[in-house]
Amino acid sequence: MSLLALSDVTIRYGRLTAVRNVALTLAEGEVLFITGPNGAGKSSLLRAIAGVTPPAGGRIDFADHDITGRAPEDIARLGLSMVPEGRDVFASLTIEENLMVGAGMHVKESNWRARVTNALEEVYETFPILRDRRHAQAGLLSGGQQQMLVIGRALMTNPRLVAIDEPSLGLAPNITDQVYERLIALQGQRKLTLLIVEQSSTRAMMVGGRMILMRGGEVLIDGDARAMGQSEAMQAAYFGYGEH
């Protein structure tokens, strides 16, 4: 049984069709990279899954629920945690407050503090830098620290699936390495399902797992990331030669 299933999903902005008839399934515990050039529709797809931009057509199922057109908070409450493009930290809140926003959302008011304290401990263990600066305003963090913060924040909701849009955006390569290292370790520990958008396929090939390649709003290739690295078809799809 798949955790996430998209069928025939189409996303439009006015007359522009950003995503066209995409079908996709993701099993529990799987790591899936969505790659593709600028404007391929990767972020749009993620936003549709998270309920931010409902699809114009098709159906999305998550955790045995039809979530097509459902509100973002309902989808989050089913266990889907989204880290959108561009790291939306709550800049005026402290780091700890940022982490607490989505924590223990199913927990009763009375148990909330205790639940949050435990979850905070776990995140601080993974990202010690956040503990050191926990009372600082989140807007003052560096890009890499903000990335750790939003990933930590996504984990605070105790999700089944974490969807991350371009975790490497604007980060130095060694920081990206760190972020991925932690992410993959967490994925192993918590049996998380990961859906990661990256423009470049190199990261997917390094980390391994499944990879799909989008271009012009469609899924062109779906397969094992490492195997795809070698394939001609993928190069052609990515750079689009033979078409222009």
Partner: peptide
């Protein structure tokens, strides 16, 4: 309070708050 925190988060970025399960 938790509700106060949710309000502050929502005031800053409503969509992000909702993606963290804050009920609009």
């Amino acid at each position: 309070t938790r509700f106060g925190l949710e309000m502050r988060a929502a005031a800053e970025n409503f969509t992000m708050a909702r993606m963290l399960g804050v009920r609009a």
